[in-house]
Simulated scan of single mutants.
Amino acid sequence: MSAAEILRAAQGRTVATAESCTGGMVAAALTDLPGSSAVFHWGVVTYSNQAKMDLLGVQKTTLDTHGAVSEPVAAEMAQGASDRAAVDVAVSITGIAGPGGSEFKPEGRVCFGLSTAAGVHTETVDFGAIGREAVRRAARDHALALILRALQA
């Protein structure tokens, strides 16, 4: 799976990203390619909770109740990106790249949100304590795969 496949599959549809632990890696992968401006609308890195609220409309109560690394926050991030960018597909990523984590939210846990015309889908992937860079790359690749599947559906 590659960003080039996303550009080929888009066929006039547009994409936005809302990233936290990946720090813009998905947006970078998409914009590394010529012609990406026809598909990629914008990306936002919302590393802090305040940025998630201010830029994407994530509710404080959702953050307080579930924490930043959660499917409910990933869902609100994806929906916020979709609404604000007016795109066909929006992906969100929030997780714990490491080092660190806790018993309840271990290092390597990443939550994804995907907003399409069909609604918002969320999922959590535990990549494990494979190191910060490896978690970030794996999360980037997983998000790109989510976008591609949405465009192919």
Rank of each mutant, 00 (worst) to 15 (best):
L7S: 07
F104I: 03
A118N: 12
A10M: 08
R137Y: 06
S70W: 01
D141T: 00
A38N: 05
G101C: 11
L56I: 07
A16K: 08
V125L: 14
A150S: 14
F127E: 12
A129Y: 01
E107L: 03
L56H: 02
K105A: 02
S115P: 00
M25K: 10
R132V: 00
S2G: 14
R137E: 14
M25F: 11
K105W: 00
R136Q: 15
Q79T: 12
V73F: 00
I96Q: 01
I93P: 00
L151E: 07
G43A: 12
P34R: 12
T65D: 06
V44T: 14
R149D: 14
G131C: 07
L7I: 12
E19V: 06
D88N: 15
A85V: 04
D141G: 03
A75D: 09
L30I: 11
D88K: 02
G57F: 10
T17H: 10
Q79F: 10
D32V: 02
N49D: 14
A28T: 13
G119Q: 08
G57R: 12
A75W: 03
T116C: 11
S92Q: 11
V89H: 10
K52H: 07
F112Q: 06
D32P: 01
A51Q: 12
A97V: 01
R149W: 00
A51I: 03
G101K: 05
A78E: 05
T65A: 15
A143D: 08
M25R: 15
A16L: 04
A9R: 07
G57A: 04
P99K: 08
G43M: 13
A4M: 05
G101Y: 04
A4I: 03
N49K: 05
T62C: 12
K60L: 11
F104A: 14
F40N: 03
A3I: 03
S2K: 10
G113S: 12
A27H: 02
F112C: 05
A138E: 11
S92P: 04
A51D: 08
G95M: 02
R8T: 14
I147M: 10
A153K: 11
V44R: 10
D141W: 09
P72H: 09
L151G: 00
D88S: 13
Q152R: 14
A29E: 15
D54M: 06
R137C: 09
G98K: 00
A9H: 11
P99D: 12
L151R: 09
L144Q: 08
L146G: 01
H41C: 10
G67W: 02
G98A: 01
A18L: 06
V91L: 07
G12I: 05
Q152V: 01
K60I: 02
A134F: 04
T61H: 09
T94C: 07
T116V: 07
P34Q: 08
A153L: 04
D54T: 13
C21K: 03
A78F: 08
A129I: 00
A139H: 07
T122S: 07
S92H: 10
L146N: 09
L148F: 06
T65K: 13
G43Y: 08
A143Q: 10
K60W: 13
E123Q: 15
A139C: 09
T61W: 08
T31E: 07
A9C: 09
Q79D: 13
